[in-house]
């Protein structure tokens, strides 16, 4: 899509705000609709939009596939690791109240924040990885035929 000047300019303007909105949805999920699942998808959409307009090679420079694959696993590890941490503090698996025994609610806030971060990282990385996998295949239908 090299020849679409308007699309390229508008994409450049949009990618930043989309990423920012994803972060807002991620970390404001306790107070308003949102959370890791939605934020991850929105975060991935920014990269997919960039990839569709500027080409796969460009977006792979920004967000290389090896990093995407490792982040997908890292998110699950963050989530599971939170549970292991609460086990090490002598409580049950994924019981966030153990983090701050004096004030269980604070522990819950921390736990939810970290766990949602894990979900968000995994979902974003998975969506980008799936997009890369589909986009890297040689297409049967060419751009002119649409």
């Amino acid at each position: 899509m090299r020849h679409h000047l308007l699309l390229r300019v508008i994409t450049k303007l949009l990618v930043g705000p989309i990423l920012l909105f994803a972060l807002y949805v991620q970390f404001h999920g306790d107070y308003s609709p949102g959370g890791g699942f939605q934020a991850g998808v929105i975060f991935a959409v920014a990269f997919i939009l960039f990839g569709i307009v500027f080409g796969l090679a460009k977006v792979k420079q920004v967000f290389p596939p090896w990093l995407v694959h490792k982040l997908a696993a890292l998110g699950v590890l963050i989530y599971a690791g939170t549970g292991v941490y609460s086990l090490m503090l002598g409580s049950t698996y994924l019981n966030y109240s153990a983090f701050t025994p004096a004030h269980p609610e604070h522990g819950q806030h921390w736990g939810i924040l970290v766990v949602e971060l894990g979900v968000g990282v995994t979902v974003a990385a998975v969506m980008v990885a799936i997009y890369y996998a589909f986009a890297a295949r040689p297409p049967v239908i060419h751009d002119e035929e649409w």
Partner: peptide, 23 residues
């Protein structure tokens, strides 16, 4: 349902990948 939607798209993409291989 919130989690089901995200799992749904992940499994849908698996189905689509199978279609690509079938083609």
């Amino acid at each position: 349902i919130l989690t089901a939607i995200v799992v749904g798209i992940a499994t849908t993409s698996l189905g689509l990948a199978l279609i690509v291989r079938i083609r």
